[in-house]
Lab assay of single mutants.
Amino acid sequence: NKFNKEMRNAYWEIALLPNLNNQQKRAFIRSLYDDPSQSANLLAEAKKLNDAQA
């Protein structure tokens, strides 16, 4: 399933972002599970926040 693969990839990328705190990571990951079709958008948002907090 395409969404499962995208979701799994996004999950690990988000989990490993160095500048997000655990609460932020959990919120993004919860959103991934709520709507796997938004994986790419959620990952992009997480990366933006990660960069902003660098």
Rank of each mutant, 00 (worst) to 15 (best):
N1F: 01
N1H: 04
N1L: 05
N1C: 11
N1R: 04
N1P: 11
N1Y: 01
N1E: 09
K2Q: 12
K2T: 04
K2N: 14
K2E: 14
K2A: 12
K2V: 08
F3W: 05
F3V: 13
F3R: 04
F3I: 09
F3E: 11
F3C: 15
F3M: 09
F3P: 15
N4T: 07
N4K: 03
N4Q: 07
N4M: 05
K5S: 03
K5D: 10
K5E: 14
K5Q: 07
K5Y: 03
K5M: 02
E6F: 05
E6T: 05
E6R: 02
E6W: 03
E6G: 02
E6C: 06
E6D: 06
M7C: 02
M7N: 02
M7P: 01
M7L: 13
R8H: 10
R8I: 06
R8E: 14
N9A: 15
N9G: 05
N9Q: 15
N9H: 15
A10G: 02
A10I: 11
A10E: 01
A10C: 02
A10N: 05
Y11E: 12
Y11S: 08
Y11V: 14
Y11Q: 11
Y11N: 02
W12P: 00
W12S: 08
W12Q: 11
W12L: 09
W12D: 04
W12H: 08
E13S: 14
E13C: 14
E13R: 15
E13Y: 15
E13F: 15
E13I: 15
E13V: 14
I14W: 01
I14C: 01
I14G: 00
I14R: 00
I14V: 05
I14N: 00
I14K: 00
I14E: 00
A15V: 12
A15Y: 15
A15I: 15
A15S: 14
A15H: 15
A15R: 15
A15F: 15
A15Q: 14
L16N: 14
L16G: 14
L16P: 01
L16T: 09
L16H: 14
L16M: 13
L16V: 08
L17R: 01
L17P: 00
L17V: 00
L17I: 01
L17Y: 06
L17F: 09
L17G: 00
L17H: 07
P18K: 15
P18N: 07
P18E: 10
P18W: 06
P18A: 15
P18I: 05
P18V: 09
N19C: 03
N19F: 13
N19I: 02
N19R: 09
N19K: 10
N19P: 00
N19G: 06
L20Y: 00
L20P: 00
L20M: 03
L20E: 00
L20D: 00
L20G: 00
L20C: 01
L20I: 08
L20R: 00
N21V: 04
N21C: 04
N21G: 08
N21R: 09
N21A: 06
N21Y: 13
N22C: 04
N22L: 13
N22W: 12
N22M: 04
N22G: 11
N22T: 11
Q23R: 11
Q23V: 06
Q23Y: 13
Q23N: 08
Q24H: 02
Q24D: 03
Q24E: 06
Q24Y: 03
Q24M: 05
Q24P: 00
Q24L: 06
Q24F: 03
Q24R: 04
K25I: 07
K25N: 00
K25H: 02
K25W: 03
K25Q: 02
K25L: 05
R26C: 10
R26Y: 14
R26M: 11
R26N: 06
R26E: 03
R26K: 05
R26V: 04
R26F: 12
A27Q: 06
A27M: 08
A27I: 06
A27Y: 14
A27C: 05
F28K: 01
F28M: 04
F28C: 01
F28D: 00
F28Q: 01
I29G: 03
I29M: 08
I29Y: 13
I29E: 02
I29H: 12
R30Q: 04
R30W: 09
R30Y: 11
R30G: 03
R30C: 03
R30L: 08
S31E: 07
S31Q: 10
S31R: 15
L32M: 05
L32Y: 01
L32K: 00
L32F: 02
L32V: 05
L32C: 01
L32E: 00
Y33M: 07
Y33G: 03
Y33H: 05
Y33T: 05
Y33E: 03
D34R: 14
D34W: 09
D34H: 06
D34L: 14
D34F: 13
D34Y: 11
D34T: 09
D34S: 11
D35P: 01
D35F: 13
D35L: 08
D35N: 12
D35G: 04
P36G: 05
P36D: 02
P36L: 06
P36W: 09
P36I: 06
P36S: 05
S37M: 13
S37W: 09
S37K: 13
S37I: 07
S37C: 03
S37V: 08
S37Q: 08
Q38V: 08
Q38K: 11
Q38W: 10
Q38E: 08
Q38R: 04
S39W: 14
S39M: 15
S39D: 02
S39T: 07
S39L: 15
S39I: 14
A40V: 11
A40F: 12
A40S: 10
A40H: 08
A40W: 14
A40Q: 06
A40Y: 12
A40D: 06
A40P: 11
A40R: 11
A40I: 09
A40T: 08
A40K: 11
N41T: 12
N41I: 12
N41K: 13
N41Q: 13
N41G: 07
N41L: 13
N41E: 07
L42Q: 04
L42F: 08
L42K: 04
L43E: 02
L43N: 02
L43W: 03
L43M: 07
L43R: 14
L43S: 07
L43P: 01
L43H: 02
L43T: 09
L43G: 02
L43K: 08
A44Q: 12
A44G: 10
A44P: 01
A44I: 10
A44L: 15
A44D: 11
A44E: 06
E45G: 05
E45S: 12
E45Y: 13
E45R: 15
E45D: 13
E45T: 10
A46D: 00
A46K: 00
A46C: 03
A46H: 00
A46T: 01
A46F: 02
A46P: 00
K47Q: 05
K47D: 02
K47A: 06
K48G: 08
K48S: 08
K48E: 12
K48R: 11
K48P: 00
K48L: 11
K48F: 08
L49Y: 07
L49K: 08
L49S: 04
L49T: 11
L49Q: 06
L49G: 01
N50K: 01
N50Y: 01
N50R: 01
N50W: 01
N50C: 02
N50M: 01
N50H: 02
N50V: 01
N50D: 08
N50F: 01
N50L: 01
D51Q: 11
D51K: 12
D51L: 14
A52T: 10
A52D: 08
A52R: 10
A52Y: 10
A52P: 03
A52F: 11
A52V: 09
A52C: 03
Q53H: 07
Q53N: 07
Q53P: 07
Q53W: 10
Q53F: 10
A54E: 11
A54T: 15
A54L: 09
A54I: 08
A54Q: 14
A54Y: 11
